[in-house]
Amino acid sequence: MASGPHVRRWWTSHADPSPEAIGRRCAADIDGTTATRIWIAEVNGRSVGFVQDYRVGDHPDYALLAPDPDAVGLDYAIGEPEWVGRGIGARILWAWMLKAQHRLPDASAYFAAPDHRNEASLRVLEKVGFTRGVWFDEPQGDGSVATVVGCTLDIDLVVA
């Protein structure tokens, strides 16, 4: 899966965005040996994006900002530029939500926090039922700060 400029714009804290470097950094998450899980999204057998999830409460700094510290946090991206703007993002998130509901049946909410300028991501979240909430500053790995929008989805209301 490639990582085009449309992804690197929002994921600036990673020095090397190549698929090989991402694979090395995220191998334990992909293998399921950490609390964060990464799911590869495929279309016709080709990797086009990912979703990663984690319990917000496992990250105390985030738990203070999320409306529900027991929520499942998620991050996602479509890395292949030719798949951007084709509706695949909403389908990926919906498929992930259906699987997550069975894997994590005690969760009552999902929480994502995209950059406040990332309107494409905010629209995808709204399409699948997230609501925008509090804006907050999130420290990045490179020392910068990103202003993000906390978006929450009530699982019982939208997915169940």
Score class of each variant (00 low, 15 high):
4 G>E: 02
6 H>M: 01
7 V>Q: 03
12 T>P: 14
12 T>C: 00
15 A>G: 05
18 S>Q: 05
22 I>R: 02
23 G>M: 11
24 R>S: 11
24 R>C: 06
26 C>L: 11
26 C>N: 12
27 A>W: 03
31 D>S: 12
34 T>F: 02
36 T>L: 09
36 T>A: 12
36 T>V: 14
39 W>Q: 04
43 V>P: 01
46 R>K: 10
46 R>H: 10
46 R>L: 03
51 V>G: 01
56 V>A: 10
57 G>W: 07
59 H>E: 10
61 D>I: 10
64 L>N: 04
65 L>V: 08
65 L>F: 05
67 P>R: 04
69 P>I: 12
70 D>H: 13
71 A>S: 06
72 V>W: 06
73 G>Y: 04
74 L>Y: 09
77 A>C: 11
82 E>W: 04
83 W>G: 00
84 V>I: 12
84 V>C: 11
85 G>K: 09
87 G>V: 08
88 I>C: 04
94 W>T: 15
94 W>K: 14
97 M>R: 03
99 K>F: 09
99 K>M: 12
100 A>K: 03
101 Q>I: 02
101 Q>E: 03
102 H>T: 10
103 R>G: 12
104 L>Y: 13
105 P>T: 02
108 S>T: 13
109 A>N: 02
113 A>E: 14
114 P>W: 00
115 D>C: 05
117 R>L: 02
118 N>G: 01
122 L>D: 01
122 L>H: 09
123 R>N: 14
123 R>I: 02
126 E>Y: 06
126 E>G: 09
127 K>F: 04
129 G>W: 08
131 T>K: 14
132 R>L: 02
133 G>E: 05
